[in-house]
């Protein structure tokens, strides 16, 4: 039967081995993989400014990006592809909340300046170029609404 010192050894050895493996894989991911992707070299100052705005306004508190965030508002990884630049920019600059007349849910009316709205658009465009192993998956069907 297992003794306490064997159990302790199992814990310590397992922890050390898997921590070292994890750190090694992290290094490989960061240095050998992510840093070498072509899109990592297209992070312009505008994209970075957009990321600051994205975080500074906690957009993730309602939306998701790369599927991460909250589940209250649409996933935005491919938003420019889906909605087009003009729509997104107009919405970001709008002085009235999105959804005020259409449904119960509203989006904060940020009323961004054109410059800031452009930064966010650049950020979304960049996000759309990242290789995400197939996410978001294309829906299997395409159905229409009956009126």
């Amino acid at each position: 039967m297992l003794t306490k010192s064997q159990a302790k050894l199992f814990f310590l050895a397992g922890t050390i081995i898997f921590s070292v493996l994890f750190l090694g894989l992290s290094y490989d991911t960061h240095v050998n993989h992510v840093a070498n992707q072509p899109y990592e070299k297209t992070i312009t100052p505008a994209v970075i400014a957009g990321k600051h705005l994205w975080e500074g306004n906690n957009c993730m508190g309602c939306h998701t990006i790369f599927g991460e965030g909250a589940y209250y508002a649409p996933e935005l990884t491919k938003v420019i592809e889906r909605r087009g630049e003009g729509y997104v920019k107009g919405l970001l600059m709008s002085p009235t909340p999105w959804g005020e007349h259409t449904s119960g849910r509203k989006m904060v009316a940020y009323g961004f300046s054109e410059e800031d709205a452009q930064y966010l658009v650049e950020y979304f465009k960049w996000i759309g170029t990242v290789d995400l192993n197939g996410f978001p998956a294309k829906p299997k069907y395409k159905i229409e609404k009956n009126n």
């Binding site: 814990f11 994890f22 991911t29 995400l132 197939g134």
Partner: peptide, 19 residues
């Protein structure tokens, strides 16, 4: 730790990390 440390990988599927 045996499962949970490398289990972090389930957050790395779709964020641009290697496959």
């Amino acid at each position: 730790f045996l499962s949970g440390i490398l289990g972090t990988g389930h957050h790395y599927y779709y964020i641009g990390a290697p496959s």
